[in-house]
Amino acid sequence: MDKVFLEEIIYRYKHPLHRGKNSGQKIASENVSCGDKITIYLEIFDDKIVDAKFDGSLCSIANYGAELLLDKIIGQKITELSQINSADLLGEIGASLLQNPVRLKCFELAQIALNELKSASQKRI
């Protein structure tokens, strides 16, 4: 793993922007192979995510995945969420993680939780 990328992961782990709770809708997921758990809290108004937080028991990469995901989705319409993918979230700096299927699973834990919301919203449509 590239040193700059590693430092970025550790920085967001120690200085998270979105860790916490709010009173919004809760979605959760678990990585059964390693025991990591995440809960995402979404305040949705008029089909738009106006605030999002997460907490749980997470490794630094799962934490990083949640941080980047929430960076992206806050302010987005629920209908726009389907366009999110790991390659876009990771960008050039984190592209090496795409070649590491075990740790990519950690990174995608928050996205898996979000998928629940996506499928629920698709059912509504």
Partner: peptide, 12 residues
């Protein structure tokens, strides 16, 4: 500290 995080830093 998560075991995977130890392993990640040790791997470095």
């Amino acid at each position: 500290i998560h075991p995977h995080d130890f392993a990640m830093l040790l791997n470095q």
